[in-house]
């Protein structure tokens, strides 16, 4: 079986800055990692490969430096890697991004597509189900467990207060939670191969069957009108006293607010 895993390179969210004029991310100089939910998705695919005869293909849309996480995936055990990159893809919102990823996936053969539930930079959880929508596939979101049974997958699908054990016929798309597993490390041999021997193939606009009005900034229904850092609530009263005085201060405060 063929498994495609969609991964995203994300900035370390503690060091993010925005371009105040365009409202878009400044990625340069910010440490980048493979998005955690995506990495769990990759690990799930590799575990399926460990048990069954399967090929794991990783794809990522992003700027040229996103190649790093594709190399990392190869070093973890993925068979093939594609970087989907083109200037005209820039500024895509989730709908445009999913159109591009779906077009890339259409050039490949697949039984199962795994994406992360959401990326830590955007937290939208939209791209996975939207890829499925464009491809006309069933999707099962929020997977906390994945088992392959013949032509079917059985997914432990998380909700707030319950799980559904969902049996879906392949081809289908699953979005993975980082709770799914503990991703493996790259092996030294894998790292050597990934960086010296293996190829990360490039897919650009001319390689894909997409409509120009559906991609990039102009293909995006949503746009950032404004971005800003959050103002914290006004500072209250902070005291540094001994224990007894501290307690008196808190009790007085609670009484003043009629809590007690």
């Amino acid at each position: 079986m063929n498994i495609i895993v969609c991964i995203k390179q994300v900035p370390d969210t503690t060091e993010v800055r925005l371009n105040p004029e365009t409202g878009t991310l400044i990625r340069d100089g910010v440490p980048s990692i493979m998005n955690p939910d995506d990495k769990a998705g990759l690990e799930a695919a590799l575990r399926i490969k460990d048990k069954n005869a399967a090929t794991v293909t990783v794809i990522s849309m992003g700027p040229p430096q996103a190649e790093a996480i594709l190399r990392e995936s190869l070093a973890m055990g993925a068979d093939e890697a594609f970087l989907i990159t083109d200037k005209v893809f820039g500024g895509s919102d989730t709908l445009a991004t999913s159109s591009i990823l779906a077009a890339a996936i259409k050039t490949m053969s697949y039984d199962l597509i795994i994406t992360g539930r959401q990326a830590i930079d955007g937290d939208t959880a939209q791209v996975g189900p939207q890829i499925a929508e464009h491809l006309g596939l069933v999707n099962v979101s929020y997977a906390e467990g994945i088992e392959v049974e013949g032509n079917y997958v059985v997914v432990k699908r998380q909700y707030e207060d319950r799980y559904h054990m969902i049996k879906a016929k392949m081809p289908c798309l699953i979005t993975a939670l980082s709770e799914l597993n503990e991703p493996r490390y790259m092996t030294p041999g894998g790292i050597f191969d990934a960086y010296r021997q293996r190829e990360v193939k490039i897919l650009a606009r001319p390689d894909l069957d997409v409509i120009d009005t559906n991609i990039g900034l102009k293909g995006s229904p949503t746009r950032v009108a404004k971005s800003f850092t959050k103002e914290l609530k006004g500072k209250g009263t902070v005291v540094q006293l001994d224990v007894e005085e501290s307690v008196d201060f808190l009790i007085e405060s609670l009484q003043k607010k009629f809590v007690i």
Partner: peptide, 8 residues
């Protein structure tokens, strides 16, 4: 971005 920034 993990709550670092608000976007409208």
């Amino acid at each position: 971005f993990g709550g670092n920034i608000m976007a409208t």
